[in-house]
Nucleic acid binder design. Structure first.
Length: 260
DNA sequence: ATGTCACTCCTAGAGTGA
């Protein structure tokens, strides 16, 4: 069971790369962020032709999340309970039937925060609190759970190209890092770090300043696993090559494989 | 801080968000 998370930064612009990637890797479940289109304008047909079921929560112009699944999607919700940003499409969660079992998956797009003095930064921290409360609730049940997405935080020094240079960045500030840590402290596991505790890899490179060419990236996209999912974790990888294609997203897919 | 990209709207380029 291959599960991926990818901030595509516009589903419409990224369709050619997305379709090629789906055909090449055939992930069973894909968690998308920043689709940047309204729910009923999502380009469903080419993806459905590859066998995927869809759950979509979009809005005009920005944000937007979606779930693609080769297995049936039983039901889904399109908001965190008690979300502080009710008008932002930043969360979708589905229950998916798999042979002999089931899995719950969430696709999350945490607010960037803009800068440490911005009102949006406070909203980011509040969003983390709502996510924490929801994960705490979910973990009461003994389910296979994967919450993946763009968390807009590099949790540890190793997740930055240079921890000194990252100081002051809204992607590496200590309050955001502590919010992410508190998700782990609930009993969630960071899939990539379970498999690769010391690998220096990134999931995002800014479009500006030649960040990709200079490898000035950060690991801000993550797959969080419940204990029963973590017990089944077989592999985890970052598809960095996609950042070098024509018309790339500024993020690349983060993928894990569970033995379900 | 910003060398880019993708969105929006009084379709042309300024404003926004990242």
């Amino acid at each position: 069971m291959k599960i991926a998370s990818w901030n595509v930064n516009s589903i419409n612009i990224r369709m050619p790369i997305l379709l090629d990637w789906l055909k090449a890797h055939k992930p069973h479940i894909v968690l998308l962020q920043e689709i940047k289109c309204e729910t009923d304008k999502f380009p469903k047909e080419p993806i459905e032709e590859l066998g995927y079921n869809l759950a979509i929560h979009g809005q005009k112009g920005f944000n937007g999340v979606a779930i693609l699944s080769l297995f049936p999607i039983d039901d889904f919700i399109t908001a965190l309970p008690s979300s502080p940003l009710a008008d932002h499409a930043r969360y979708i969660e589905a229950t998916i039937s798999i042979p002999g079992s089931a899995i719950r998956v969430g696709s999350v797009y945490v607010p960037n925060g803009e800068n440490l003095d911005s009102a949006k930064y406070q909203q980011k921290l509040q969003f983390f609190d709502a996510l924490h409360a929801h994960c705490s609730e979910l973990l009461q049940r003994d389910e296979h759970i994967v919450i993946g997405g763009d968390f807009n935080v590099a949790p540890e020094d190793i997740d930055t190209f240079n921890p000194d240079a990252a100081q002051g960045s809204v992607l590496f500030d200590m309050p955001s890092r502590k919010k992410f840590r508190s998700l782990l402290n609930l009993g969630m596991y960071n899939a990539f770090r379970l498999i690769h505790p010391t690998e220096h890899q990134f999931s995002w490179w800014d479009y500006r300043q030649g960040s990709w060419q200079r490898n000035l990236g950060m690991m801000i996209d993550h797959l969080l696993l419940s204990p029963s999912s973590a017990d089944k974790l077989k592999s985890a990888e970052i598809h960095s090559k996609l950042r070098g294609l024509e018309k790339p997203s500024d993020h690349v897919p983060v993928v894990c494989e569970l033995e379900l």
